[in-house]
Design a binder for these strands. Sequence first.
DNA 1: GTATTCTCTATCGTAAAAGTTGACAATGGG
DNA 2: CCCATTGTCAACTTTTACGATAGAGAATAC
Lengths: 150, 150
Amino acid sequence: MLSQKTRYAIRAMQHLADKYGQGPIPLTDIAETQNIPAKFLTVILSELSRYGIVASQRGKDGGYWLGVPPIDITYGDLIRVMRGSLALVPCASRFAHETCKNCVEEKDCRTRALMLQVRDATAGLLDGMRLSDKIDPVPAAEGLEAVEDV
Amino acid sequence: MLSQKTRYAIRAMQHLADKYGQGPIPLTDIAETQNIPAKFLTVILSELSRYGIVASQRGKDGGYWLGVPPIDITYGDLIRVMRGSLALVPCASRFAHETCKNCVEEKDCRTRALMLQVRDATAGLLDGMRLSDKIDPVPAAEGLEAVEDV
DNA sequence: GTATTCTCTATCGTAAAAGTTGACAATGGG
DNA sequence: CCCATTGTCAACTTTTACGATAGAGAATAC
């Protein structure tokens, strides 16, 4: 699962992408329309601006904007910035590899082999989706099914 | 990320799959070869046996075995049992849908639209991989790259 | 009856996640 | 120059989830 913070970050970035080229967007504008606790959002935006993908200006008429054109920011980038990795297990990350604790040797680990495939599929999708993409929300009802018996 | 518990569960199930048809496997056998804290493993195996995918017998020569043939258990099933969902956000789960807290309306949520795609791709892979599959571990060195600047 | 092995509920400790506080610094306008 | 506005930052609190353990109990085999 993505953390709440990562989800906030994604929505904030989408908001800035929508208003790209319109000058500084004040934090409260993002917080209100995206339903994000304002103070927490300051932490998130500071973090993103340290990476350079968000720029900011203080004072009257200040605010935030994308430091990079929306077409150059993928959702994969965002998730990597916020949580370090796209993978489901640390040992299956390609950019932030870590050996798993209490595991078997990596060279013998079948779970890792599977999770590398999942990571690659996920990356294939998320690295192809950009902040500039027009995305049609999926109607809420769609895709709900009963819980499956296992 | 998958929780440690989920990873333990997967390895325990792989172990039982390897020994399918060989009678009850004692917990300590699984714990030792798979490097899982024994006491914690009791919790995990109890949980799995409540779902019927693991069977057990107490007493001398007791132990655990798969309650279902390994070909009928997918990795998708395992992850759903352990963590409820394959999705990266609660609102993108197809079998355990929940609305996200502090989010925008689902019908307006672009993140959800993206994450449904990711979920479907993940499910496409994991629901096709079975405990009976012969899996070749990937050599540990493979797939390590430098951290990318974002 | 005794050793073995699983069962179950409760509980603990820690770390991470989520969110808040408050002092501070820059900017623009009167 | 003062003041309102808006971002910056480090420290802190609160909450929650996770990982793990404890310990009493029940079935089974010999």
